[in-house]
């Protein structure tokens, strides 16, 4: 019985994943090689050509999504790191409050928050309206339907997922270790570069995983804040499934995106996730 305990503990979660992840995945994988249409039904023909076709047709959106995801992730790091650093080292007894503030947007629906950004950024909205009446920006200047708006929305929506893991990593850095570096002739900047930064990299690593993946496959921000030029692969997948009812194309796109992401993350983990980075930083 004792030996079985770990397996029994894993059973509910394992069953959940099996029923709601593995089974649908297998099903969708099968759909991706079927042919037909929603009226006459789909037939399994092992039509792998769909993959080549979707890649060729939606190459632009694929690359754009990865580009947006990368840009959003980098900007998130730049914003989240100082925030996490400040909370971890200067937050004092109010750390929990500050963390709650970081998480506060989560108490409002994702779509609702993004829609409110649409109001904020609208051409005659509360930001651009006064600026235009004051003549500070041109009449034809707009923020909505731009790349900046989509990436801004992505960063806004996923920022907490970057702040939290970096905060956790920084929180674990013993402040006397930083003092030790200062004592051993390291100026503030060097102590940060040689001690704090390397020790917080696992948090940055986790944050990148938690933001890059959902950002790249996001469709809400592009749909609400972007224009025709900002369509991401998520929007295409959504359209294929829900509008065109072309399930094989939608499934093939999904699996292509997933494979690309898994390979990318695997390479990233091999390059950055090991202790090699720490060792390099130690020099």
């Amino acid at each position: 019985m004792r030996r079985l305990t770990p397996y029994l503990l894993v059973l509910p979660g394992g069953l959940w994943l099996l029923v709601f992840l593995v089974v649908p995945m297998v099903f969708m994988a099968s759909v991706s090689t079927q042919e037909g249409d929603v009226v006459n039904g789909f037939v399994q023909t092992f039509h792998f050509a769909t993959y080549g076709e979707v890649l060729a047709q939606y190459q632009t959106q694929f690359l754009r999504s990865v580009g947006y995801g990368l840009a959003g992730t980098v900007i998130s790091i730049l914003i989240a790191y100082p925030v996490a650093y400040w909370i971890a080292f200067k937050g004092g007894s109010r750390k929990a409050t500050y963390l709650l503030l970081v998480l506060l947007p989560f108490f409002v629906s994702f779509v609702l928050r993004t829609v409110s950004w649409k109001f904020l950024l609208a051409d005659d909205g509360i930001v651009l309206g006064p600026l235009k009446s004051a003549g500070l920006v041109g009449e034809d200047f707009h923020l909505l339907q731009t790349t900046a708006a989509v990436i801004g929305g992505l960063v806004y929506n996923y920022l907490p997922f970057m702040v939290l893991p970096i905060y956790v990593a920084l929180e674990r850095v013993n402040p006397t270790v930083i003092e030790a570096a200062r004592d051993l002739y390291a100026p503030r900047a060097v102590a940060f570069a040689k001690i704090v930064l390397p020790l917080s990299l696992p948090g940055v690593f986790a944050g990148v995983l938690m933001t890059f993946v959902p950002m790249t496959s996001d469709y809400v921000n592009a749909a609400i804040l972007g224009g025709p030029e900002n369509t991401m692969i998520g929007n295409i997948i959504q359209t294929e499934y829900l509008v065109n009812n072309d399930y094989p194309v939608g499934a093939a796109l999904s699996f292509t995106l997933m494979a690309a992401m898994l390979i990318g993350i695997f390479a990233y983990a091999r390059a950055l996730g090991t202790e090699n980075v720490l060792e390099a930083a130690a020099r």
Binding site: E179, D183, K194, P198
Partner: peptide
């Protein structure tokens, strides 16, 4: 502290956890 020619041994040692012994001592 980095410009004072005194060094400290901390109560909790405060060794750099991501460095080996050699790199700690060479810091």
């Amino acid at each position: 502290p980095n410009k004072r020619d005194v060094n400290m041994v901390f109560q909790s040692y405060a060794l750099f956890p991501h460095m080996d012994v050699w790199e700690n001592v060479a810091f």
